[in-house]
């Protein structure tokens, strides 16, 4: 099992943490970034997944 990763929204800085998921839009804790639906969007500024990048 690899560690959970974090992805940051390039527009507003929101962080998607795989460990936490995104409760409000029904993404369960532990959901991998690849498994987040393509039409999911940043809960804070509305932009799409393509605006996110891996946080290292």
């Amino acid at each position: 099992m690899s560690d959970y990763k974090k992805y940051v929204c390039g527009v507003c800085g929101h962080i998607y943490n795989e460990a936490e998921g995104d409760e409000e839009s029904g993404i369960a804790p532990g959901t991998r970034w690849e498994d987040v639906p393509a039409d999911w969007h940043c809960p804070e500024c509305g932009v799409g997944k393509d605006e996110y990048s891996l946080l290292d």
Binding site: C12, H41, P43, E44, C45, G46, V47
Partner: peptide
Amino acid sequence: YYSRPLLSRGFSKNDIEQSIIL
């Protein structure tokens, strides 16, 4: 309550008038 940053994607996205509403 809508996303102001998305205003600048307001022409390339067809469903923007709905999808901009957070």
